[in-house]
Write a protein that binds this DNA or RNA. Sequence first.
DNA 1: GTCTATAGGGGGATAGAC
DNA 2: GTCTATCCCCCTATAGAC
Lengths: 201, 201
Amino acid sequence: MTALQREEDPPRRGNARRAELVALAGRLFRERGYHGVGMRAIAEAAGIQAASLYHHFRNKEELLLETIYVVDRDMVVEQLPILDGPGTHRERLARLVHAHVLHIGANHDAWRVAGRELRALSPEHVDTVQGYRRGYQHRIARHLAEGVSAGEFVCADPRLATLAILDMINGPNEWYRPEGRLEIGRIADSYAELVVRQLSA
Amino acid sequence: MTALQREEDPPRRGNARRAELVALAGRLFRERGYHGVGMRAIAEAAGIQAASLYHHFRNKEELLLETIYVVDRDMVVEQLPILDGPGTHRERLARLVHAHVLHIGANHDAWRVAGRELRALSPEHVDTVQGYRRGYQHRIARHLAEGVSAGEFVCADPRLATLAILDMINGPNEWYRPEGRLEIGRIADSYAELVVRQLSA
DNA sequence: GTCTATAGGGGGATAGAC
DNA sequence: GTCTATCCCCCTATAGAC
Protein backbone atom coordinates (compact mmCIF):
# COMPACT_ATOMS: atom_id res chain seq x y z
CA MET A 1 0.00 0.00 0.00
CA THR A 2 2.78 2.42 0.89
CA ALA A 3 4.37 1.45 -2.38
CA LEU A 4 1.81 3.71 -3.98
CA GLN A 5 3.29 6.81 -2.44
CA ARG A 6 6.04 6.52 -5.01
CA GLU A 7 5.29 3.58 -7.24
CA GLU A 8 7.39 4.84 -10.11
CA ASP A 9 10.68 6.68 -10.37
CA PRO A 10 9.57 10.03 -11.80
CA PRO A 11 8.55 12.34 -8.96
CA ARG A 12 4.80 12.70 -8.51
CA ARG A 13 4.97 16.38 -7.72
CA GLY A 14 1.65 18.15 -7.51
CA ASN A 15 1.74 19.09 -11.16
CA ALA A 16 -1.44 20.76 -12.32
CA ARG A 17 -0.54 20.53 -15.99
CA ARG A 18 0.14 16.85 -15.62
CA ALA A 19 -3.21 16.20 -13.94
CA GLU A 20 -4.91 18.22 -16.63
CA LEU A 21 -3.37 16.09 -19.35
CA VAL A 22 -4.31 12.88 -17.55
CA ALA A 23 -7.94 13.97 -17.26
CA LEU A 24 -7.96 14.91 -20.90
CA ALA A 25 -6.47 11.61 -22.00
CA GLY A 26 -8.91 9.79 -19.73
CA ARG A 27 -11.84 11.36 -21.49
CA LEU A 28 -10.51 10.40 -24.90
CA PHE A 29 -9.74 6.85 -23.74
CA ARG A 30 -13.31 6.52 -22.53
CA GLU A 31 -14.76 7.79 -25.78
CA ARG A 32 -12.64 5.86 -28.24
CA GLY A 33 -10.75 3.23 -26.25
CA TYR A 34 -7.07 3.24 -25.35
CA HIS A 35 -5.95 1.75 -28.63
CA GLY A 36 -8.31 4.00 -30.53
CA VAL A 37 -6.58 7.16 -29.37
CA GLY A 38 -3.12 8.13 -30.56
CA MET A 39 -0.60 10.39 -28.89
CA ARG A 40 -1.19 12.84 -31.71
CA ALA A 41 -4.90 13.02 -30.87
CA ILE A 42 -4.23 13.60 -27.18
CA ALA A 43 -1.72 16.29 -28.01
CA GLU A 44 -4.10 17.97 -30.41
CA ALA A 45 -6.83 18.06 -27.77
CA ALA A 46 -4.32 19.72 -25.44
CA GLY A 47 -3.24 22.19 -28.08
CA ILE A 48 0.35 20.99 -28.24
CA GLN A 49 2.47 18.66 -30.37
CA ALA A 50 2.75 14.93 -29.74
CA ALA A 51 6.42 15.16 -28.90
CA SER A 52 5.65 17.59 -26.07
CA LEU A 53 3.70 14.93 -24.22
CA TYR A 54 6.92 13.03 -23.66
CA HIS A 55 8.16 15.85 -21.50
CA HIS A 56 5.34 15.04 -19.04
CA PHE A 57 5.06 11.27 -19.43
CA ARG A 58 7.47 8.51 -20.25
CA ASN A 59 5.08 6.85 -22.67
CA LYS A 60 1.45 6.38 -23.54
CA GLU A 61 0.90 3.67 -20.96
CA GLU A 62 1.77 6.06 -18.14
CA LEU A 63 -1.26 8.16 -19.10
CA LEU A 64 -3.46 5.10 -18.82
CA LEU A 65 -1.90 3.92 -15.60
CA GLU A 66 -2.48 7.21 -13.87
CA THR A 67 -6.14 7.22 -14.88
CA ILE A 68 -6.75 3.72 -13.57
CA TYR A 69 -4.85 4.24 -10.32
CA VAL A 70 -7.11 7.09 -9.30
CA VAL A 71 -10.13 4.82 -9.32
CA ASP A 72 -8.73 1.64 -7.83
CA ARG A 73 -6.65 3.29 -5.13
CA ASP A 74 -9.57 5.48 -4.07
CA MET A 75 -11.85 2.51 -3.65
CA VAL A 76 -9.49 0.69 -1.32
CA VAL A 77 -8.15 3.69 0.57
CA GLU A 78 -11.27 5.83 0.90
CA GLN A 79 -14.34 3.64 0.48
CA LEU A 80 -13.39 0.32 2.03
CA PRO A 81 -12.89 1.69 5.59
CA ILE A 82 -16.66 2.17 5.68
CA LEU A 83 -16.88 -1.52 6.57
CA ASP A 84 -14.82 -0.88 9.69
CA GLY A 85 -17.14 1.92 10.83
CA PRO A 86 -20.11 1.85 13.17
CA GLY A 87 -23.44 0.13 12.56
CA THR A 88 -24.82 -3.32 11.87
CA HIS A 89 -23.43 -5.44 9.08
CA ARG A 90 -26.41 -4.54 6.96
CA GLU A 91 -26.01 -0.84 7.56
CA ARG A 92 -22.32 -0.84 6.79
CA LEU A 93 -22.80 -2.86 3.61
CA ALA A 94 -25.58 -0.55 2.46
CA ARG A 95 -23.34 2.44 3.12
CA LEU A 96 -20.50 0.93 1.12
CA VAL A 97 -22.73 0.12 -1.84
CA HIS A 98 -24.14 3.62 -1.77
CA ALA A 99 -20.69 5.24 -1.72
CA HIS A 100 -19.46 2.88 -4.44
CA VAL A 101 -22.22 3.90 -6.85
CA LEU A 102 -21.74 7.60 -6.09
CA HIS A 103 -18.02 7.23 -6.78
CA ILE A 104 -18.81 5.88 -10.23
CA GLY A 105 -21.07 8.82 -10.91
CA ALA A 106 -18.43 11.31 -9.82
CA ASN A 107 -15.59 9.73 -11.83
CA HIS A 108 -17.18 8.12 -14.81
CA ASP A 109 -14.40 8.79 -17.30
CA ALA A 110 -11.80 7.09 -15.17
CA TRP A 111 -14.17 4.30 -14.12
CA ARG A 112 -15.06 3.37 -17.66
CA VAL A 113 -11.41 3.28 -18.62
CA ALA A 114 -10.47 1.27 -15.53
CA GLY A 115 -13.20 -1.22 -16.35
CA ARG A 116 -12.26 -1.73 -19.96
CA GLU A 117 -8.62 -1.04 -20.53
CA LEU A 118 -6.83 -2.91 -17.78
CA ARG A 119 -5.22 -5.37 -20.16
CA ALA A 120 -3.59 -2.56 -22.10
CA LEU A 121 -1.23 -2.08 -19.16
CA SER A 122 2.05 -3.92 -18.83
CA PRO A 123 1.90 -7.19 -16.85
CA GLU A 124 3.48 -5.64 -13.75
CA HIS A 125 1.02 -2.79 -13.66
CA VAL A 126 -1.87 -5.18 -14.24
CA ASP A 127 -0.70 -7.10 -11.19
CA THR A 128 -0.64 -4.00 -9.04
CA VAL A 129 -4.13 -2.94 -10.02
CA GLN A 130 -5.50 -6.44 -9.59
CA GLY A 131 -3.98 -6.45 -6.13
CA TYR A 132 -6.19 -3.51 -5.23
CA ARG A 133 -9.23 -5.21 -6.68
CA ARG A 134 -8.55 -8.42 -4.83
CA GLY A 135 -8.15 -6.45 -1.61
CA TYR A 136 -11.50 -4.77 -2.12
CA GLN A 137 -13.19 -8.03 -3.02
CA HIS A 138 -11.75 -10.05 -0.16
CA ARG A 139 -12.68 -7.45 2.41
CA ILE A 140 -16.28 -7.52 1.24
CA ALA A 141 -16.36 -11.32 1.23
CA ARG A 142 -15.14 -11.26 4.81
CA HIS A 143 -17.85 -8.78 5.73
CA LEU A 144 -20.49 -11.07 4.27
CA ALA A 145 -19.13 -14.09 6.13
CA GLU A 146 -19.09 -12.13 9.39
CA GLY A 147 -22.62 -10.97 8.72
CA VAL A 148 -23.70 -14.57 8.31
CA SER A 149 -22.08 -15.49 11.62
CA ALA A 150 -23.84 -12.57 13.25
CA GLY A 151 -27.14 -13.87 11.96
CA GLU A 152 -27.75 -10.82 9.77
CA PHE A 153 -27.14 -12.35 6.36
CA VAL A 154 -28.27 -15.53 4.65
CA CYS A 155 -25.73 -16.62 2.11
CA ALA A 156 -24.52 -20.06 1.03
CA ASP A 157 -21.30 -18.87 -0.63
CA PRO A 158 -19.97 -15.44 0.48
CA ARG A 159 -17.27 -15.39 -2.19
CA LEU A 160 -19.73 -16.00 -4.99
CA ALA A 161 -22.19 -13.51 -3.51
CA THR A 162 -19.40 -10.95 -3.43
CA LEU A 163 -18.79 -11.40 -7.14
CA ALA A 164 -22.50 -11.07 -7.82
CA ILE A 165 -22.72 -7.89 -5.78
CA LEU A 166 -19.63 -6.31 -7.31
CA ASP A 167 -20.76 -7.06 -10.84
CA MET A 168 -24.10 -5.51 -10.04
CA ILE A 169 -22.83 -2.32 -8.42
CA ASN A 170 -20.12 -1.85 -11.06
CA GLY A 171 -22.83 -2.04 -13.71
CA PRO A 172 -23.78 1.65 -13.74
CA ASN A 173 -20.24 2.24 -14.93
CA GLU A 174 -21.35 0.96 -18.32
CA TRP A 175 -24.81 2.46 -18.65
CA TYR A 176 -25.13 5.47 -16.34
CA ARG A 177 -25.55 8.77 -18.17
CA PRO A 178 -25.76 12.04 -16.20
CA GLU A 179 -28.55 13.20 -18.50
CA GLY A 180 -30.46 9.90 -18.26
CA ARG A 181 -33.70 8.96 -16.54
CA LEU A 182 -32.13 8.02 -13.23
CA GLU A 183 -30.18 10.33 -11.00
CA ILE A 184 -27.09 8.69 -9.54
CA GLY A 185 -28.23 9.16 -5.95
CA ARG A 186 -31.41 7.28 -6.70
CA ILE A 187 -29.48 4.42 -8.27
CA ALA A 188 -27.26 4.32 -5.20
CA ASP A 189 -30.29 4.15 -2.90
CA SER A 190 -31.98 1.41 -4.87
CA TYR A 191 -28.85 -0.69 -5.18
CA ALA A 192 -28.10 -0.49 -1.47
CA GLU A 193 -31.61 -1.80 -0.86
CA LEU A 194 -31.40 -4.55 -3.51
CA VAL A 195 -28.08 -5.82 -2.18
CA VAL A 196 -29.29 -6.04 1.39
CA ARG A 197 -32.48 -7.76 0.34
CA GLN A 198 -30.48 -10.28 -1.68
CA LEU A 199 -28.69 -11.27 1.50
CA SER A 200 -31.81 -11.55 3.63
CA ALA A 201 -33.83 -14.69 4.21
CA MET B 1 -35.41 -10.42 -37.14
CA THR B 2 -35.71 -11.93 -40.61
CA ALA B 3 -33.16 -9.36 -41.68
CA LEU B 4 -30.65 -11.61 -40.03
CA GLN B 5 -31.20 -14.37 -42.53
CA ARG B 6 -29.19 -12.28 -44.98
CA GLU B 7 -28.09 -9.12 -43.27
CA GLU B 8 -25.19 -8.60 -45.62
CA ASP B 9 -24.69 -9.12 -49.33
CA PRO B 10 -22.15 -11.96 -49.37
CA PRO B 11 -23.95 -15.31 -49.17
CA ARG B 12 -23.87 -16.92 -45.74
CA ARG B 13 -23.43 -20.43 -47.08
CA GLY B 14 -22.70 -23.06 -44.49
CA ASN B 15 -18.98 -22.64 -44.86
CA ALA B 16 -17.00 -24.72 -42.40
CA ARG B 17 -13.75 -22.96 -43.18
CA ARG B 18 -15.37 -19.60 -42.58
CA ALA B 19 -16.78 -20.68 -39.21
CA GLU B 20 -13.37 -22.07 -38.28
CA LEU B 21 -11.72 -18.74 -39.02
CA VAL B 22 -14.35 -16.83 -37.06
CA ALA B 23 -13.85 -19.04 -34.02
CA LEU B 24 -10.11 -18.61 -34.31
CA ALA B 25 -10.35 -14.84 -34.60
CA GLY B 26 -12.79 -14.80 -31.69
CA ARG B 27 -10.30 -16.51 -29.46
CA LEU B 28 -7.57 -14.05 -30.37
CA PHE B 29 -9.91 -11.08 -29.91
CA ARG B 30 -10.75 -12.34 -26.46
CA GLU B 31 -7.13 -12.79 -25.49
CA ARG B 32 -5.70 -9.55 -26.84
CA GLY B 33 -8.62 -7.32 -27.75
CA TYR B 34 -9.88 -6.47 -31.22
CA HIS B 35 -7.41 -3.66 -31.78
CA GLY B 36 -4.64 -5.71 -30.28
CA VAL B 37 -4.88 -8.39 -32.97
CA GLY B 38 -3.85 -7.73 -36.54
CA MET B 39 -4.93 -9.54 -39.66
CA ARG B 40 -1.41 -10.91 -39.88
CA ALA B 41 -1.76 -12.54 -36.46
CA ILE B 42 -5.11 -14.10 -37.35
CA ALA B 43 -3.72 -15.39 -40.63
CA GLU B 44 -0.64 -16.77 -38.95
CA ALA B 45 -2.78 -18.66 -36.42
CA ALA B 46 -4.70 -20.12 -39.36
CA GLY B 47 -1.53 -21.04 -41.20
CA ILE B 48 -2.19 -18.75 -44.17
CA GLN B 49 -1.22 -15.29 -45.36
CA ALA B 50 -3.06 -12.14 -44.33
CA ALA B 51 -4.22 -11.45 -47.87
CA SER B 52 -5.94 -14.83 -48.00
CA LEU B 53 -8.34 -13.78 -45.25
CA TYR B 54 -9.87 -11.28 -47.65
CA HIS B 55 -11.09 -14.15 -49.77
CA HIS B 56 -13.36 -15.17 -46.87
CA PHE B 57 -14.19 -11.80 -45.34
CA ARG B 58 -14.60 -8.29 -46.67
CA ASN B 59 -12.62 -6.75 -43.87
CA LYS B 60 -11.53 -7.18 -40.29
CA GLU B 61 -14.78 -5.87 -38.87
CA GLU B 62 -16.73 -8.69 -40.50
CA LEU B 63 -14.80 -11.15 -38.36
CA LEU B 64 -15.81 -9.25 -35.25
CA LEU B 65 -19.40 -8.83 -36.32
CA GLU B 66 -19.86 -12.52 -36.89
CA THR B 67 -18.50 -13.34 -33.45
CA ILE B 68 -20.80 -10.90 -31.71
CA TYR B 69 -23.90 -11.89 -33.66
CA VAL B 70 -23.65 -15.47 -32.51
CA VAL B 71 -24.04 -14.39 -28.90
CA ASP B 72 -26.63 -11.65 -29.15
CA ARG B 73 -28.87 -13.37 -31.66
CA ASP B 74 -28.82 -16.60 -29.68
CA MET B 75 -29.92 -14.85 -26.52
CA VAL B 76 -32.97 -13.30 -28.14
CA VAL B 77 -33.91 -16.16 -30.41
CA GLU B 78 -33.17 -19.15 -28.22
CA GLN B 79 -33.14 -18.06 -24.57
CA LEU B 80 -35.77 -15.36 -24.34
CA PRO B 81 -38.73 -17.63 -25.28
CA ILE B 82 -38.24 -19.29 -21.89
CA LEU B 83 -40.22 -16.41 -20.43
CA ASP B 84 -43.22 -17.40 -22.58
CA GLY B 85 -43.10 -21.00 -21.36
CA PRO B 86 -44.97 -22.71 -18.53
CA GLY B 87 -44.56 -22.04 -14.82
CA THR B 88 -44.86 -19.20 -12.36
CA HIS B 89 -43.08 -15.92 -12.95
CA ARG B 90 -40.44 -16.92 -10.43
CA GLU B 91 -39.86 -20.29 -12.08
CA ARG B 92 -39.58 -18.82 -15.55
CA LEU B 93 -37.18 -16.10 -14.43
CA ALA B 94 -35.05 -18.64 -12.58
CA ARG B 95 -34.95 -20.79 -15.71
CA LEU B 96 -33.88 -17.85 -17.88
CA VAL B 97 -31.10 -16.84 -15.50
CA HIS B 98 -29.90 -20.41 -15.37
CA ALA B 99 -29.82 -20.74 -19.15
CA HIS B 100 -28.16 -17.35 -19.51
CA VAL B 101 -25.26 -18.30 -17.28
CA LEU B 102 -24.84 -21.67 -18.98
CA HIS B 103 -24.72 -19.92 -22.35
CA ILE B 104 -21.84 -17.79 -21.13
CA GLY B 105 -19.99 -20.88 -20.00
CA ALA B 106 -20.51 -22.59 -23.34
CA ASN B 107 -19.46 -19.62 -25.47
CA HIS B 108 -17.00 -17.69 -23.40
CA ASP B 109 -14.76 -16.53 -26.22
CA ALA B 110 -17.61 -14.91 -28.10
CA TRP B 111 -19.22 -13.57 -24.93
CA ARG B 112 -16.12 -11.81 -23.76
CA VAL B 113 -15.67 -10.24 -27.16
CA ALA B 114 -19.34 -9.22 -27.37
CA GLY B 115 -19.06 -7.60 -23.97
CA ARG B 116 -15.95 -5.61 -24.67
CA GLU B 117 -15.60 -4.87 -28.33
CA LEU B 118 -19.00 -3.58 -29.38
CA ARG B 119 -17.75 -0.07 -30.07
CA ALA B 120 -15.21 -1.38 -32.56
CA LEU B 121 -18.08 -2.09 -34.93
CA SER B 122 -19.38 0.45 -37.42
CA PRO B 123 -22.29 2.60 -36.17
CA GLU B 124 -24.88 0.66 -38.19
CA HIS B 125 -23.72 -2.66 -36.81
CA VAL B 126 -23.64 -1.25 -33.31
CA ASP B 127 -27.26 -0.25 -33.75
CA THR B 128 -28.27 -3.71 -34.86
CA VAL B 129 -26.60 -5.41 -31.93
CA GLN B 130 -27.98 -2.89 -29.46
CA GLY B 131 -31.40 -3.60 -30.88
CA TYR B 132 -31.04 -7.21 -29.82
CA ARG B 133 -29.87 -6.17 -26.39
CA ARG B 134 -32.72 -3.75 -25.93
CA GLY B 135 -35.17 -6.47 -26.97
CA TYR B 136 -33.74 -8.83 -24.39
CA GLN B 137 -33.74 -6.20 -21.69
CA HIS B 138 -37.25 -4.93 -22.35
CA ARG B 139 -38.73 -8.40 -22.37
CA ILE B 140 -37.23 -9.09 -18.96
CA ALA B 141 -38.43 -5.76 -17.58
CA ARG B 142 -41.92 -6.64 -18.75
CA HIS B 143 -41.68 -10.02 -17.05
CA LEU B 144 -40.73 -8.34 -13.78
CA ALA B 145 -43.59 -5.87 -14.03
CA GLU B 146 -46.03 -8.71 -14.73
CA GLY B 147 -44.62 -10.64 -11.81
CA VAL B 148 -45.27 -7.66 -9.57
CA SER B 149 -48.86 -7.47 -10.79
CA ALA B 150 -49.25 -11.17 -10.15
CA GLY B 151 -48.06 -10.64 -6.58
CA GLU B 152 -44.96 -12.78 -7.06
CA PHE B 153 -42.32 -10.05 -7.10
CA VAL B 154 -41.58 -7.02 -4.95
CA CYS B 155 -39.86 -4.36 -6.98
CA ALA B 156 -40.07 -0.57 -6.93
CA ASP B 157 -38.51 -0.02 -10.36
CA PRO B 158 -38.60 -2.98 -12.77
CA ARG B 159 -36.41 -1.24 -15.34
CA LEU B 160 -33.67 -0.55 -12.83
CA ALA B 161 -33.98 -4.04 -11.36
CA THR B 162 -33.56 -5.45 -14.86
CA LEU B 163 -30.30 -3.59 -15.29
CA ALA B 164 -29.11 -4.82 -11.91
CA ILE B 165 -29.99 -8.41 -12.79
CA LEU B 166 -28.41 -8.28 -16.22
CA ASP B 167 -25.19 -6.79 -14.93
CA MET B 168 -25.05 -9.49 -12.30
CA ILE B 169 -25.71 -12.46 -14.57
CA ASN B 170 -23.40 -11.12 -17.28
CA GLY B 171 -20.67 -10.89 -14.68
CA PRO B 172 -19.32 -14.45 -15.03
CA ASN B 173 -18.43 -13.43 -18.56
CA GLU B 174 -15.54 -11.50 -17.07
CA TRP B 175 -14.31 -13.82 -14.35
CA TYR B 176 -15.48 -17.36 -15.07
CA ARG B 177 -12.66 -19.78 -15.79
CA PRO B 178 -13.43 -23.41 -16.73
CA GLU B 179 -10.57 -24.54 -14.51
CA GLY B 180 -11.63 -22.35 -11.58
CA ARG B 181 -13.17 -23.13 -8.21
CA LEU B 182 -16.77 -22.93 -9.36
CA GLU B 183 -18.35 -25.13 -11.98
CA ILE B 184 -20.61 -23.18 -14.32
CA GLY B 185 -23.70 -25.18 -13.41
CA ARG B 186 -23.22 -24.28 -9.78
CA ILE B 187 -22.90 -20.60 -10.61
CA ALA B 188 -26.08 -20.85 -12.67
CA ASP B 189 -27.94 -22.47 -9.77
CA SER B 190 -26.76 -19.91 -7.25
CA TYR B 191 -27.53 -16.95 -9.47
CA ALA B 192 -31.04 -18.14 -10.23
CA GLU B 193 -31.62 -18.31 -6.50
CA LEU B 194 -30.05 -14.92 -5.75
CA VAL B 195 -32.09 -13.19 -8.43
CA VAL B 196 -35.37 -14.62 -7.23
CA ARG B 197 -34.56 -13.73 -3.65
CA GLN B 198 -33.70 -10.19 -4.66
CA LEU B 199 -37.23 -9.83 -6.01
CA SER B 200 -38.96 -11.31 -2.98
CA ALA B 201 -40.24 -9.36 -0.02
C1' DG C 1 -8.19 -20.55 -52.20
C1' DT C 2 -3.81 -19.14 -51.44
C1' DC C 3 0.19 -16.76 -52.76
C1' DT C 4 3.76 -12.46 -53.36
C1' DA C 5 4.21 -7.76 -53.49
C1' DT C 6 2.96 -3.41 -52.31
C1' DA C 7 0.27 0.72 -51.65
C1' DG C 8 -0.86 4.23 -48.33
C1' DG C 9 -1.43 5.63 -43.89
C1' DG C 10 -0.99 5.82 -38.86
C1' DG C 11 1.28 4.20 -34.78
C1' DG C 12 4.80 5.31 -30.66
C1' DA C 13 8.82 7.36 -29.76
C1' DT C 14 13.37 10.19 -30.12
C1' DA C 15 16.87 14.01 -31.29
C1' DG C 16 17.98 18.32 -30.81
C1' DA C 17 16.87 23.35 -31.53
C1' DC C 18 14.84 27.18 -29.10
C1' DG D 1 8.06 23.20 -22.06
C1' DT D 2 7.25 23.21 -26.59
C1' DC D 3 8.73 22.94 -31.21
C1' DT D 4 10.13 20.61 -36.06
C1' DA D 5 11.73 16.73 -38.27
C1' DT D 6 12.17 12.12 -38.59
C1' DC D 7 12.82 7.00 -37.70
C1' DC D 8 11.01 2.60 -37.99
C1' DC D 9 7.43 -0.40 -37.50
C1' DC D 10 2.86 -2.27 -38.08
C1' DC D 11 -1.66 -1.59 -39.78
C1' DT D 12 -5.64 -2.66 -43.27
C1' DA D 13 -6.47 -3.55 -47.75
C1' DT D 14 -5.74 -4.35 -52.85
C1' DA D 15 -3.74 -6.19 -57.39
C1' DG D 16 -2.80 -9.84 -59.88
C1' DA D 17 -0.27 -14.44 -60.54
C1' DC D 18 -0.96 -19.37 -59.87
